[in-house]
């Protein structure tokens, strides 16, 4: 079964068509990257998959569950990390993980288990007991990624997971994603960093103006365009 199946997806804001008929699917255990210039509908697509926005037309199914008709059930199998998301600054890192674990799992013992796992993943150690407002951007992002995956979702949707991070923090987050995917978790990632995409993803979907322009493995795309540079593929597709 596909982890994600999107057919004829359209999203309109008044007269503006943010997503204009997308079709693609993501296999279970795969890391799929959605790439494209700014403002072409990547975040809107991720929000529709996360059940935060409803499609104007078309359908999305997550592990066979429709995101409109079975939105509540979909929310139980996904975890979404928005681009440049923040956390509750007056909570400590641990309190934030506690809170989110309870919100997603609703069971004290499962939540405690998830928090222990998330605390380890975050790599924040004793700083987890400090208030989030004292964290650097990298620390906050690692906490948020830990939050997103600690509940072991079947599909993790990450919008620009390493945006604005330094090399070390970016590397650690990419490594975590790769390790989790090896353990069977499915990832749908949006990113502008082509090196990151190439390192992480099994397949790439390139979109522009709300439409899918290409969808294949990085190697296949490079071969198709006769280049060794994935960025060149991206530029030639989107210009």
């Amino acid at each position: 079964m596909d982890a994600l199946n999107i057919r004829g997806l359209v999203k309109k804001y008044g007269d503006f068509e943010a997503v204009a008929g997308l079709d693609f699917s993501v296999r279970e255990g795969e890391i799929f990257a959605l790439v494209g210039p700014n403002g072409v509908g990547k975040s809107t697509t991720l929000k529709m998959i996360s059940t935060i926005l409803t499609p104007t037309a078309g359908s999305i199914s997550v592990f066979g569950l429709d995101t409109v008709a079975a939105a509540h059930a979909v929310r139980s199998v996904i975890s979404y990390l928005p681009e440049e998301a923040g956390a509750y600054k007056n909570l400590t890192g641990r309190e934030y993980l506690d809170f989110m674990a309870m919100v997603f799992l609703r069971d004290k013992s499962r939540a405690a288990e998830a928090v222990a796992y998330g605390a380890g993943l975050s790599g924040l150690g004793a700083r987890l007991d400090d208030k989030i407002k004292t964290y650097s951007k990298g620390m906050a992002r690692k906490l948020l990624l830990a939050r997103a995956v600690m509940i072991k979702p079947r599909l993790a949707i990450l919008d620009e997971p390493t945006s604005g991070l330094d090399i070390v923090n970016g590397y650690e987050i990419r490594k975590t994603i790769k390790d989790l995917a090896a353990g069977g978790m499915t990832f749908l990632i949006s990113s502008h960093n082509m090196a990151e995409i190439e390192f992480l993803s099994g397949r790439i979907g390139v979109i522009n103006k709300g439409r899918l322009l290409a969808c294949d493995t990085p190697a296949a795309l490079k071969s198709q365009f006769g280049t060794e540079d994935l960025e060149e593929v991206f530029v030639r597709l989107t210009q």
Binding site: K47, S50, H72, S79, Y80, P82, A85, G86, V103, F104
Partner: peptide, 14 residues
């Protein structure tokens, strides 16, 4: 809304 913590909550099974 600004911090996007709301988006996280809205995507939860709450």
């Amino acid at each position: 809304k600004e911090n996007k913590t709301l988006e996280t909550l809205l995507s939860s099974p709450l």
